[in-house]
Design a protein around this nucleic acid. Structure first.
Lengths: 132, 132
DNA sequence: ACCTGTATTGACGTTAACGTCAACGTAATT
DNA sequence: AATTACGTTGACGTTAACGTCAATACAGGT
């Protein structure tokens, strides 16, 4: 069965650590499109996945638009030859940006490690002085 | 020699692809502190490095404050035992965040690769149809 | 003396991504 | 019938990170 159960707005908010305002905002902007019965929102499993991806993008420092764009790429492999070629270009471009980001990240982590080592060394130099 | 030459505001702006407004803004907020002769700014090599780090943080989606905080960690290994211990904690926390970000990044890159493969496959399925 | 280029300091405008009410509906519980 | 819990729609407020003028200074070349 295709996981037919749905989530309330506060269910999702609690699960992902965001506020209901955030979810309503995402819908208002078209980044989420939960089912509406009357005025009430019902989030499907697909909505939930999409939210997860949006928040992952957010943690990467992407704007909501950027996240949405990437997510839309995920469900694309259709269309003519031209469309496919264009899509491949987009994907390559994105990958380039993300790889640069990965390099930045690695550099920063390396820097932090260096500081951490120096820090521990300084701490070690400090301790024996007390045992004099 | 310790690289004694200095950079004008537009030198740096051009080199790093930001506007002069950005650099003035960074100074105004205390993220940069170029020398001032009269009213004119003279950026040192140290300022330049600091700017590079700030922009690296920006590419990672960090706020300017966060970048500045991390950069300040870099030049810290001093102070008493208590300070050092606190610093180590901070560093570990930061590393945790960045490692989570690295995981997100890897996941996203993997997703994109998957799409790219599917995309190429679709393209390959399309081409032989033309040679019929 | 005039122009060109680069610098400066305000000061107001803008955009994204929500926060923060206020006022209201509805369904279940007491 | 009243409370409690959860939902809704406006509508205005907020913060970060600049953009975009406008008015001004100053140095060098012609």
């Amino acid at each position: 069965m295709p996981d037919t159960r749905s989530y309330s707005i506060s269910d999702l908010a609690a699960e992902f650590g965001v506020t209901t305002r955030t979810l309503r905002f995402y819908e208002e902007k078209g980044f989420l499109a939960p089912e509406r019965r009357g005025r009430v929102r019902y989030f499907s499993a697909a909505d939930r996945v999409r939210l997860r991806l949006i928040l992952r993008g957010r943690r990467l420092g992407l704007s909501l638009e950027e996240s949405a764009e990437i997510i839309d790429l995920y469900k694309a492999p259709e269309g003519g030859k031209r469309q496919l070629a264009a899509l491949i270009d987009k994907l390559a471009e994105r990958r380039g940006q993300l790889e640069k980001q990965a390099a930045d990240l690695a550099a920063t982590l390396a820097d932090l490690e260096g500081v951490e080592d120096a820090c521990r060394a300084a701490l070690a130099d400090l301790k024996p002085a007390r045992s004099r």
